[in-house]
Amino acid sequence: MIHTTLMLILMLLAGSPAWAQDAIGFVKTVSGSAEVIDTGKAVKAQVGMPIKTGNTLKTGPGGTLGITFKDNTVMSFGPDTELTVDEYLYAPETDNLKFGTSVAKGSLQVVSGAIAKLKPKSVTMKTPTGTIGIRGTHYLVKIEP
């Protein structure tokens, strides 16, 4: 409780803009057509754009996108790729750790971050045919629709 309060005060003092306070990551690279879908609304992806839980990240033909999450997970998407962040909890001090994504199509590279190292069984990626459980690792996924 004290921690949460202090953290909140500090974030205000640090002057983080409101849009970034529930950010779980940021767009770091974009080329061609790429968008972030937030509660049904698609916005053209731009470097620095915050990513939130529930967002769908999507690239069009020829588009690419790179995201770095707060737990240091780095994802990069090739063209025609679609991934949704279903769950993201990163509070190591209270052991609240979870990272669940679903990939519908496309090609992506993932370099896992702290959540996969601290609590390996809490990181999963759903694919159209099953589930991948990630135990602290670097991997590639290709899904043809």
Partner: peptide
């Protein structure tokens, strides 16, 4: 087959694990 997952080396040279479950 077109859809697949492949495990790669970590930056520090170690290799992690993936469990892949389906029907």
């Amino acid at each position: 087959p077109k859809s697949y997952v492949v495990l790669m080396d970590n930056q520090d040279g170690t290799v992690g694990q993936l469990s892949v479950s389906s029907t």
